[in-house]
Measured scan of single mutants.
Amino acid sequence: EPLWIRPDAPSRCTWQLGRPASESPHHHTAPAKSPKILPDILKKIGDTPMVRINKIGKKFGLKCELLAKCEFFNAGGSVKDRISLRMIEDAERDGTLKPGDTIIEPTSGNTGIGLALAAAVRGYRCIIVMPEKMSSEKVDVLRALGAEIVRTPTNARFDSPESHVGVAWRLKNEIPNSHILDQYRNASNPLAHYDTTADEILQQCDGKLDMLVASVGTGGTITGIARKLKEKCPGCRIIGVDPEGSILAEPEELNQTEQTTYEVEGIGYDFIPTVLDRTVVDKWFKSNDEEAFTFARMLIAQEGLLCGGSAGSTVAVAVKAAQELQEGQRCVVILPDSVRNYMTKFLSDRWMLQKGFLKEEDLTEKKPWWWHLRVQELGLSAPLTVLPTITCGHTIEILREKGFDQAPVVDEAGVILGMVTLGNMLSSLLAGKVQPSDQVGKVIYKQFKQIRLTDTLGRLSHILEMDHFALVVHEQIQYHSTGKSSQRQMVFGVVTAIDLLNFVAAQERDQK
């Protein structure tokens, strides 16, 4: 057995438009009618409502009807409940999964919650491996369901041993009777949507819809739904939504950006999952974080739909894509998950301010006199920076000697690579993860907040409520011999709460 199987392995699926269902090699399930009293909570997966979006479509000038398939009504709160249950049931049916076995899954959280929910009911041990950027709410729900959680670096490539995929496979090879159901490759993922989600949409719309818009992560949702719609409703256009920084969209030119990270969760990847059939997507749109969270908040405030950030991405694209539809036509959007997962993220004004998705003037509360002053007023001194090749031991000596707790790590040209902190280095040394002679590049981390000289002290204040420091950066445009230009970030300084307090105190003292 291989040590790991690539999540982007070539698909062996034989589905073709027009091929009889009787030739399918898979076990198919028909939607079942729910009894009045459910035998367990797993029976509350599927049969989610279709809700008309009344205000947002009109606000953006849509002539067509805009409908939302509300997947956050599933038992675990997301569309991923469907595939989690289906993968477990299919693994039980073919004898792969037996009582007492362990389920391991690399996930952005929602599939993990679905699997942990099913594992709690069915009696399996469950280990979820997820990147650090995923919300604390997801972690809390997983723990409450009895799952064990392993976190991995957000910026690790999918084929790196440190990625959530790599760590999951390492655990599988170490733990007896453990299984990775593997949402990236498992046919049960798109089949769950082909058999149930798509049929529900067709039934709820009486077979009449002209466009379907869905955000894409593993691709199982859009693949399964689109294949069924292509068979039953061939005139329906399928629109895929991919965040900026991901590479799922086609044509490839759409993916060209210097951005590699994004805040919206559960969609987009740096590889093409095996289950994603991009041939059934008629057109791709890219979405960005700001519009995703703005539209998610709009869905909550104006439509009462308590959905997550990827739902915002989907609707932001839908109001663009559906401009081509006329009166009497219908566009369906998939709202994948609930706001429950993001209470401390985009639902929080403070978080939105820190990330730059909300401006101070958007909030009406009274601010102190210094709130709208610029960061450049602080008069920061030149920063202490270190090269990635310097040793951890030497870096600790320098920081202690100069009285700093942290320093930016830059390359020879001064471009920011990340940050090192005294606390992080000492804990890594004590844990045996690094040696004093190791290069400081081994303990770089990139989960820090950046701020510009033109940003306000109010925004800085919000950042420092949650973080010990902020890195002050400025952009530099560099022209190359080819005539092309590129933008790079340079370090201007490091600012802490002490710097802000000293500035405010000094100004008030001078005024007296």
Rank of each mutant, 00 (worst) to 15 (best):
I238G: 00
I239P: 05
I239Y: 08
G240N: 02
G240Q: 01
D242A: 02
D242S: 03
P243G: 06
P243M: 13
G245K: 05
G245V: 05
S246H: 01
I247W: 06
I247P: 07
L248T: 05
L248D: 02
E250H: 10
P251K: 06
E252G: 11
E253R: 15
E253Y: 06
L254T: 09
T257M: 15
E258Y: 08
Q259C: 09
T260N: 05
T260G: 11
T261F: 11
Y262R: 00
E263G: 03
G266S: 00
G268V: 00
G268H: 00
Y269P: 03
F271Q: 00
P273W: 06
V275A: 11
L276V: 08
L276A: 03
D277Q: 06
T279Y: 15
V280P: 09
V281R: 05
D282G: 12
K283Q: 14
W284T: 01
F285N: 07
K286R: 03
S287E: 09
D289R: 00
E290R: 03
E290W: 10
A292P: 03
F293A: 02
F293N: 00
F293Q: 00
F293I: 01
A296Y: 00
R297Q: 05
M298A: 10
L299H: 04
L299E: 04
L299K: 04
L299W: 02
A301N: 12
E303K: 09
L305H: 02
L305N: 01
L306Q: 06
G308H: 01
G308D: 01
G308P: 02
G309V: 01
G309D: 02
S310A: 06
S310G: 02
S310K: 03
S310C: 04
A311S: 15
A311T: 15
G312A: 00
G312S: 01
T314Q: 12
T314K: 11
V315F: 10
V315K: 07
V315W: 06
V315G: 08
A316S: 04
A316H: 14
V317L: 12
V317S: 02
A318G: 15
A318T: 13
K320R: 06
A321C: 14
A322E: 01
Q323L: 15
Q323M: 13
L325R: 00
Q326R: 13
Q326W: 08
Q329D: 03
R330G: 02
C331Y: 00
C331K: 00
V332T: 04
V332G: 02
V333P: 06
L335R: 00
D337I: 01
D337E: 05
S338H: 05
S338I: 04
V339D: 05
R340M: 06
R340K: 08
N341V: 00
Y342S: 02
Y342D: 01
M343N: 05
F346L: 14
L347V: 03
L347H: 02
S348D: 14
S348Q: 07
D349T: 07
R350F: 04
W351P: 00
W351I: 00
M352V: 04
K355P: 01
G356D: 03
G356L: 06
G356N: 10
F357E: 04
L358Q: 10
E360T: 12
E360N: 15
E361A: 02
E361K: 13
E361Y: 11
D362G: 12
L363N: 09
L363I: 11
T364V: 03
K366R: 04
K366D: 14
P368Q: 07
P368M: 06
P368F: 08
W369E: 06
W371L: 11
W371M: 09
H372P: 11
Q376R: 13
Q376D: 10
Q376A: 03
E377N: 04
E377L: 12
L378H: 05
G379D: 14
A382R: 11
A382E: 14
A382S: 11
P383W: 06
P383M: 08
L384E: 10
T385M: 11
V386H: 06
P388D: 03
C392T: 15
C392D: 08
C392I: 15
C392L: 14
T395F: 05
I396T: 13
I398W: 07
L399G: 03
L399V: 09
K402M: 14
G403D: 13
F404R: 02
F404Q: 04
D405C: 04
Q406S: 05
Q406F: 04
Q406Y: 07
Q406P: 02
A407E: 11
P408H: 02
P408T: 03
V409S: 05
V409H: 00
V409F: 08
V409M: 15
V410R: 15
V410C: 12
D411K: 12
D411P: 15
E412S: 12
A413D: 01
A413L: 15
A413S: 14
G414F: 15
G414L: 09
I416N: 09
L417N: 10
G418D: 06
M419I: 14
M419W: 13
V420E: 08
V420W: 00
G423D: 04
G423I: 03
N424R: 11
M425S: 04
S428N: 11
L430F: 14
A431D: 15
A431P: 07
G432S: 09
G432A: 14
K433P: 06
V434D: 11
V434A: 12
S437G: 13
D438C: 09
D438Y: 15
D438E: 15
Q439D: 03
V440S: 14
V440F: 06
G441C: 08
G441I: 12
K442I: 14
K442F: 15
K442G: 09
K442M: 15
K442H: 15
V443N: 09
V443K: 09
V443Q: 12
V443P: 09
V443F: 14
I444P: 12
Y445R: 08
Q447F: 09
Q450W: 15
Q450V: 08
T454A: 02
T454E: 11
T454M: 14
D455P: 09
D455Y: 10
T456F: 15
L457T: 05
G458P: 07
G458V: 10
R459E: 02
L460Q: 07
S461F: 15
H462T: 11
H462S: 14
L464H: 07
L464G: 06
L464Y: 06
E465M: 04
E465Y: 07
M466A: 10
D467P: 09
D467E: 15
D467F: 15
H468Y: 08
F469L: 12
L471R: 02
V472M: 15
V473K: 11
H474L: 08
E475A: 06
Q476K: 11
I477H: 10
Q478P: 14
Q478L: 14
H480Y: 12
S481R: 14
S481F: 15
S481A: 14
S481N: 12
T482G: 04
G483E: 15
G483T: 15
S485T: 03
S485G: 07
Q487E: 15
R488K: 15
R488A: 13
Q489I: 10
Q489V: 14
M490T: 02
F492H: 12
G493L: 15
V494E: 05
V494I: 11
V495W: 09
V495P: 08
T496V: 08
T496W: 02
A497V: 13
I498Y: 14
D499R: 02
L501R: 05
L501T: 02
N502Y: 12
F503A: 10
F503T: 14
F503L: 14
V504K: 12
A505E: 12
A505P: 02
A506S: 13
Q507V: 14
R509V: 12
Q511I: 11
Q511R: 12
Q511D: 10
Q511T: 15
